[in-house]
Write a protein that binds this DNA or RNA. Sequence first.
RNA 1: GGGCGCGUAGCUCAGUGGAAGAGCACUCGCCUUACAAGCGAGUGGUCGCAGGUUCGAACCCUGCCGCGCCCA
Length: 840
Amino acid sequence: MPDRPSLDGLDAKWADRWERAGVYRFHAPGDRAAVFSIDTPPPTVSGSLHVGHVFSYTHTDIIARFQRMRGKHVFYPMGWDDNGLPTERRVQNYYGVRCEPSKPYDPDFRAPEPVGKKGDRGVQSISRRNFVELCEQLTAQDEKAFEETWRKLGLSVDWSMTYTTIGRHAQRVSQTSFLRLLRAGEAYQAEAPVLWDVGFRTAVAQAELEDRDHAGAWHRVAFHGPGGQPIHIETTRPELIPACVALIAHPDDERYQGLFGGTVRSPIFGVEIPVLAHPAAEPERGAGIAMCCTFGDLTDVQWWRELKLPTRTVIGRDGRILADPPSGLDDPEGRKAYAELAGATVHTARERIVAMLRESGDLDGEPRKTVRPVKFYEKGDKPLEIVSSRQWFIRSIAHQDVLLERGAELNWHPSYMKARYDDWVRGLNGDWLISRQRFFGVPFPVWYPLDEAGEPRYDAPILPSEDALPIDPSSDTPPGYAEDQRGRPGGFVGDPDVMDTWATSSLTPQIACGWETDPELYAQTFPMDMRPQAHDIIRTWLFATVLRAELDGHTLPWRHATLSGWILDPDRKKMSKSKGNVVTPIDLLEQFSPDAVRYWAANGRPGTDTAFDQGQMKIGRRLATKLLNASKFVLGFPRPAGGAACTEALDRAMLAALDDVVRQATEALEAFEYTSALERIERFFWFFCDDYVELVKQRAYDEAGGPATESARLALRTALSTLLRLLAPFLPYSAEEAWSWWHDDSVHTSPWPTPGAAEGDARVISLASSTISAIRKAKSDAKRSMRAPVESVRVVGPRGELRTIETISGDLRAAGNVESLELTPDDDHELRIEVSLADA
RNA sequence: GGGCGCGUAGCUCAGUGGAAGAGCACUCGCCUUACAAGCGAGUGGUCGCAGGUUCGAACCCUGCCGCGCCCA
């Protein structure tokens, strides 16, 4: 036991010992009921950890530690989400490279020096395989740094079970699951219009969209009616005029009754276009008649599908106008005009076409500026386009009802978060698009035979056997073929796409629990007990995981979902990356100690956004330091003899009150309410230090010993043992340090306290506190030391209360340095305490 | 536009039908043999606003205002 206990250095000391002793190692007990399994969110390693991570992962760790002390075998693996676009982007920016799939692999390629500043040097094109290798190298580095932070924070993770979402095991699980869905008809591919990000050149899913206000302008444009009369439409996207396949108005719109069923000619391009009626047209919007294009928005897709309209694609996957005009654009003048647009970006094409319309007199008035919500890919910086392409989907629309049922079975913490899930499931408007035209991800384990013309036969995919997984169809050869047949007529070709990150991370329970690879482990850990995550990814991660477990086994993946809030900066705004990076988690842990940072995190209630508050960390640091000092004080007394008993009223009352705290804290933690558990424990702890310890100090010091002294020493030790264990989930380092002063085992594997048989009078405590308070106030008012002698304390009040005070009068006199304590009955008035100080 | 949450002391937040609370900050004190990185005491509130229910409302109901988030 050190002379001056300190928090500094505890993390290094204990993180190392815990690892060596295997304190958090999972040992399968052979019994599902004895396990508590946690589906830890794999953080995206393409960024840096920020205080928000520290916040929410601490919440999970508190529950993990509590359940472990409750006797559960806690299954608590960590994963790293390293696959997917965020990693690609990080690698591109970090090394200044770009993946060029047509380039051959360079076996001698060495990772370039990291880019110092943007624009320092040109971007280097490298082969897909070299690019993937760079991704693997950089994520390995990032993962190491993440693990260090987590260990320092004191997460009680079993690090021997760490997985990554790009690792072999995850790929195997992901591909196995995909093949099964494919065989069951739950996964399918289709040529369909999909939302497309032209910057990243990939399809994106509904869950990855966000609406952003985007500046644009209404253009009033004349189409030409049968008699040459102008039919005006209003559009924000005049560059899509060559893609126009119909004009559409509401069936009840009187203005256009005469035109329905007829045709008009498009300006500039001179294409004959039908005028049709459809209820999705909004009479109030613009001119009430809209041009339907391939594809301007999701309504265009709906019209195209329902009215069986032709396709006139003009925007390519790079966001530029295609070189060749679409079918139907036959007019020579029109083709000439189109040629001036070919190759231009959407923005440029719009400017040119506006100039043409102005020239031809088909632009009515000037464009009117507007701001309207436009769909963006959440990671993208250009509006999404809609392009038709072949993509993989997982069925979800067909399962909406059962998904809602599963949502109702799940225990949500806090419960109101369920509404977000329900909203999302009810609002699904298509199946889940899982293919991405990217490089660093889990490949689709599929090849296609090539026909005589060298065209892939998408309807006859070649599938690997499950035991061959994981495979990469771009380098592995399908069964029955030789590698030299790749890409040749009559040969084969691999599916070029990779799965979206969520398509793999929606399987974290299966990946972590050993689905199809470790049946024993799986039986003891799945369905998991707890899924902690942030509330903003209910529509992605939570939803997708529920879907996959349903499709695979008609089960929920876990019993409880716990949703953490966000960290807000002091201005109540969501903590931005730049701000979060000003103070890195490591800096915080160094400055305040892990226990202090955890204390701050533990004060953020489940689901509630919480302010970043270094003040709370200071308080946490104070609490942890106090715990060490109080422990040192209690353990400084001789150990009570074997036959010692708590005989004194104050000791018994204190232990009884502590039992209540144990009950309340246990109940709260069982319900994942770590904040109220901490609040109750903490409140008691300060009472223990400030009042109880002060009151029994003299009695405990008494070198003559005796039953009353033994009672105090025993009560102090008993309470300390309980308090250290109650605080261990929150302050694992200081609790472990103090515990180690008188135990050989770890506090984190010792049993969670249970209420004892202590019987005590709760009134004793409140009367003790109010009496000693009155004495202190008298001294404080007189600006005297707390040790100043008191000539007399006169307590006047009801006999019952006086009798209670009588039982603790010795402690009160000793603590207050009181010469005489006088008790005067007065049953007609409330308790009154008069204090007379001795002369200075 | 729909849904969810929030609004209590200068700040961060507890309290969900029975006497308005804690910590921080601030003020005034105290070397007190665990802790001065400590301890004691004090100042501070129209519980967003307006109605309603009730013997009694910060708490339940209705409406409004403000903030945030999710979804269209």
